[in-house]
Each structure stands twice: as structure tokens, then as C-alpha cells.
Design a protein around this nucleic acid. Structure first.
Lengths: 335, 335
DNA sequence: TCGATGGCTGCGAACGTTTGCATCGTAACC
DNA sequence: GGTTACGATGCAAACGTTCGCAGCCATCGA
């Protein structure tokens, strides 16, 4: 392993000069700087992160905590976060908590000391996790607690767009198939729908209880949706929407003729299934990137400041495909 | 931050004893050990990875390099790898190379010094990457080079199972829609198919050129498949299979009545599309776990040994769904 | 010509841990 | 009872880097 000492010897300077030439180039004379950088390049010098972190108090690494890496939603966020971390020359530890609050807290407390800060994505035990990370900077994704920085998808506007679309098609009674009980996103979506319904005034929203955010959840919800007499339904995510379509068809109902279905997230299944799903697309890679940006800012900031509380909402876009259409002329369906 | 010194003071011992009590408990007397562990627990002591890595020469972290985190295939491998790394008390840096060979080499050379070893998943520039990581241990996933440890999916057996299945249904002419030109997996699949065809002797395989491993690749391949006169087709992965089905249907052909389709990977789209795809499932999380296991073994091993070359094949399972059926004209096989 | 100024550079301590070696005390053995 | 041997513990050096401080030299002003 090639160290500062090797570079120093090759360049004919002291190790301090090597360190400075690479870390703060303006503090060293141009000719020296060039000799050093040339030597470093030639020898293939790579600073030892552990050593520099030890002395400087920074590790040069961030942590990303997600409930489920195999979920395309979180995979997309992770991809964006990783890309930005790389651009900034930072390493990124990725941890999958398997949706387990205990594992989440444990991971956070284990990760915190060896990183400069953490991104907590859709945390399941946010209070204990925040406690576990001590004074380490943190950015929350799709969650919010007072005093912390967070990056969230603009669910409220998303729900408004969905409802506008359905209303324009002629729907007046819309069901919402909700996600996990303790999901922050689900709560925001319900709020958004309620607000949108009030604003559009002649659309009625029927909220349905907690369902698993999987295809199975959609299957389970389908019959309840039919029973509400709604002519359209908004699902917690695309998988739930797929499950809905599956069960509705099994009952002999047509999508979108008998019931329009709107998904969320624009996971790539949305355009593969039949019919392709109308859905709300959010740029998840962007969410990951922004989260890392905000975290970097926090890491650079003086520890006393703590950073102001912010909740940054990222745009959502309605993607219209074939799962939504005007309701049957007769109006509300009769089961 | 609480250090060994704090723990030592609290337990009334020296810092060496603290270090030993926690790292190699058998080397310290039981009562002392207990005093130390109690103090450590009480103070919430977390060893500083940077410091311990600096002195011991190990970082306590591994690296995982994948071409595309958003690809469910690699996301699944990453999930498995992460889980096992956590179980072993190791951190896992995850890097997404965006399928870019240059970025891959750069990532490897940046990651190598700050990890104890790397898992390279479906590398796109394996030679230069291996060179870039110096003497650092490495495990290859779905690739193989002489002298290195690798974990691969048993494509040969997979192809045999697929061909057996199709032959039993009565198919005698089977097309293969291949993946990217330089893909190691694709090469293995072609070999496997050829071997299987020879073994089954009355089945003929028609190989089709390189296609993108996406839905679009399948669409592009569909007409060529039809032109071959094959009654069944095996696709490089499930997305390609979906594209095939899409285009075939657009041409008025029925799957599986006119053409049987077999995918690969059992990505979760496989069971969501119509018809649900018969596919070859490999346990990708398991591949990730095993890769980390092998890497840990390499890290522990004496550096001189270098570890023996191995190529460990993980099992593949045929999952039969509705996209395969007997060919239209002939009944069940009657030689 | 001399002192002051300021830009570059080198020295050495420190970060928190591990570990080879020395030390101490005690038990075992003759 | 004296010697040996060994287990338990402490001391201090080292890992590779950063950074405060000090020294050096040249330039500039008086």
C-alpha cells in the first residue's frame, strides 16, 4: 500500500506538504503542488480513508437505511443516492432492515459511528432510530419529524392530480385503497385526497383500511372497492393496483370499463401489465440524490447549528395509460 | 464519543484489557471480562471502526459492485449480500456502475483501499477491475476468471430443465433469444442449451443474436423467432420474454397456443403479466449471501495463500406457469 | 542595511485502536 | 522453600493521516 510517505519521498517534500497539496491545493506553491500530484498519480496513491477519518473526525462515508432493497421503490432511491454520493467522493453504506423496526434501530446505532451521517428512508421506528444515532446528522425520506431535514414525495399534489383526472373523466365516487397502517406516505395521501375532494367539491372519496403494499393487498381490497359503489379507485402503489385489477377481472369486471384504476409510483410493472396502469410517477432517483445533497450540507455545517428543519417536497407527475376511462354511461355500478 | 479509555477507567483496567476483553474474550480472566463488558454496555461503547481498521489492517467493510441497482436482479443479490454482511458484523459499501466499464474500474480502485474485499457482480470490465483492486480479495458473481473465486447461477442445468420441459410438451424446435453480446451468463446459457440439445438428441435449438436485456429486446426479437419456425422460445430474461409475448400477441399469435415462452430469473414481473410466465428461478439473495460468505473466508485467509480457484454453481429451478403448453399441431410426444 | 511581514514548508502530536513485549503474581513441581 | 512456568495484565509503539505551530527565506518598506 502506497502512503503519503512514499509520495513525499518521490516528490522530495514532507508528508505534511503532500497532505496539503492534495486536500487544500491553494495552501501550497504551484510548482510543489504539481510535483506532488504527479508523484501521487504515478504511484497510484489513494489516501487511506480510515486514517484520514480517524484524525479529521470525518469518515467520508454516508449511510442509507431502507426497509427493503428488493422493492423497486427503494432500489430506485438507493440508486440515486449512490450516484450522488459517488459524485461527491463519498462512500455509501447500504442497509436493508427487512421492514423490522428492531433491526432498523440496531442498524442505525451500528452505522452511525462509522459514517458522517445517515439517510433514513421510510423509517419504521423513527423515534428510536433518531435517538440511536446520537448527534449524527440525518435526512429523512418520506417521513418527517420536527427539527429534522426531510425529503418527501409531494403526495398531496399527486392525489390532487389523480382526482382531477378521474373527475374530468366523469367519476364522482372514488375509492382509496390504503397502505400499511403506520406508513407516513399513506397518511399524507389520505390527507391529500381529502383536501382534493374538498377543493373539487363534487367528488366523493371513500377510504379503505390498511392493506399490505403488495399484489396480495390489492386482491384483498378488490371486493371492498366494488361494494363501495365507486367507479374509480386509487391504489397505495402499483402492486396493489395490479392485485386489484387481477381480482376485479376474476370477478368478471372490466378495467377500465367497469372500474378505473390509478396506481402510485410508476414502478416498471405499471406499463407491463394488462391494461397498462395510469399511475403517479415520482422521480425516486431524484429523491435519493437530493437526500444525499441535503445530508452533505448538514455534514459540512458546524455541529452546533444543527441545520434548520425543512421538508422538501419533490414533484409528482400523472402518467395516463389505459387503466382509466370514463365510467359506464349508466353511472355508478350496481353490484 | 465514548472510547476504550472511558471503558477502561470505568472498569478499573487498562485499555489493552478492554480491547482484549471485547475482541478475544478467552484471553482475559472471567471476572475482569465481565467488569469490562458491563462497563462497555453501560456506557454504550461502540468501537471506532476507522481506528481499529487502521491498526489491525482490516476495515470491517466489504464492497459490492453491481451494474444497475434498479434492476431487480441485482437488487435481489444486493439484498442477500447485505443481509449476510450484517450477520457477520461487516459493513457493505454498495456501488452502482451504471453498466459503464470505466465507472466500474474507477469504483473498484476507489473502493478497494477502504474495504477488506469486493464482490463484483456481472462485471463489464473484469480484467481491468481485477487489476485495479490490487491484492484485495475478490469474489465474482456470474462471471469467472482463472484463479479467482466465483459464485454463479447454474445456467447449464437451467437450460437443460427448460429444454426437458419443452421436449416433454412435444416441442422439437426451440429458439433462444440471447442477451448482451459480452454477457458471461449469455455465453453459459448458449453452451448449456447446446449441451442439452445434444443430450436430448431429438430437440433442435436455434440461437438468435444479441438483444438488449429489456422489454424492447424481446419486441425486437419476436419476428425473428417466428421466422425460425420454432414452436417454443427461451428468453435471456423475463423482461425479454415479456417483450416477446407483447409483440407476438400484436401479430395475432397466441401464447402459449402458437408459441411457448420460457423466461429466466423469475423476476416478480413473471407472475404478474398475462399469461404468467414459465421461467427459471434462481435464488439471487442466496447468491449474494454465498458471495459474501466466500469473500469473508478469503479475507480471513493468509494473504499468501490467495485462496484456491473455485466456481460454485447455485441451483436453478424451473417454475411452470401458463406461458408454455404443447405445440398446436402435434399432440403429446409420440416418437 | 536592517527589521518586519508573510508565504511555504517541515516538525511532531494527536485521532482510537490493536498487539508484541515486559511485568507481575501465583500455582505447580521437585 | 526455591525455582519454574504460565496466565493475566499493563506499557508503549504503531497504523496513515491531519493540523497547529514554528521555522525559514525572500520580499518589501524604512
Amino acid at each position: 500500500m502506497v502512503t503519503v510517505h512514499d509520495v513525499a519521498r518521490a516528490a522530495g517534500v514532507s508528508i505534511s506538504t503532500v497532505s496539503r497539496a492534495l486536500a487544500s491545493p491553494e495552501r501550497v506553491a504551484a510548482p510543489t503542488r504539481e510535483r506532488v500530484t504527479a508523484a501521487a498519480r504515478e504511484l497510484g496513491y489513494r489516501p487511506n480513508r480510515a486514517a484520514s477519518g480517524l484524525r479529521a473526525g470525518r469518515t467520508g462515508a454516508l449511510g442509507l437505511v431502507v426497509p427493503d432493497l428488493a422493492n423497486p421503490y427503494f432500489a430506485a432511491v438507493a440508486k440515486g443516492a449512490q450516484a450522488r454520493a459517488r459524485e461527491r467522493g463519498l462512500g455509501l453504506f447500504v442497509v436493508d432492515t427487512e421492514e423490522d423496526p428492531r433491526l432498523e434501530v440496531e442498524s442505525v446505532s451500528g452505522l452511525a459511528p462509522q459514517t458522517d451521517g445517515l439517510v433514513l428512508c421510510s423509517p419504521r421506528a423513527v423515534d428510536r432510530s433518531v435517538e440511536a444515532l446520537g448527534r449524527r446528522p440525518v435526512v429523512l425520506v418520506n417521513h418527517h419529524v420536527a427539527g429534522l431535514t426531510s425529503v418527501v414525495v409531494d403526495h398531496a399534489t399527486g392525489m390532487l392530480r389523480a382526482l382531477e383526472h378521474l373527475r374530468a373523466l366523469g367519476h364522482r365516487r372514488v375509492a382509496y385503497v390504503g397502505g400499511p397502517e403506520r406508513s407516513w406516505s399513506d397518511a399524507r395521501r389520505r390527507e391529500g385526497l381529502a383536501a382534493a375532494a374538498e377543493r373539487l367539491d363534487d367528488v366523493e372519496v371513500v377510504e379503505l383500511g390498511a392493506f399490505r403494499p403488495q399484489v396480495s393487498g390489492g386482491r384483498a381490497a378488490a371486493d371492498l372497492v366494488v361494494a363501495t359503489g365507486a367507479t374509480a379507485v386509487v391504489a397505495f402503489n402499483d402492486l396493489v393496483a395490479v392485485g386489484l385489477v387481477e381480482r376485479l377481472r376474476a370477478r368478471g369486471l372490466d378495467v377500465p370499463a367497469d372500474l378505473s384504476v390509478v396506481g402510485c409510483d410508476d414502478a416498471y410493472v405499471a406499463e407491463l401489465v394488462t391494461p397498462p396502469l395510469t399511475t403517479l410517477r415520482s422521480d425516486l432517483a431524484d429523491v435519493g440524490r437530493v437526500a444525499v445533497d441535503r445530508l452533505s450540507a448538514l455534514v459540512g455545517a458546524p455541529p452546533a447549528a444543527g441545520g434548520p428543519e425543512t421538508e422538501e417536497a419533490r414533484a409528482v407527475e400523472l402518467v395516463v395509460r389505459s387503466s382509466t376511462a370514463p365510467p359506464r354511461s349508466t353511472g355508478p355500478s350496481s353490484p
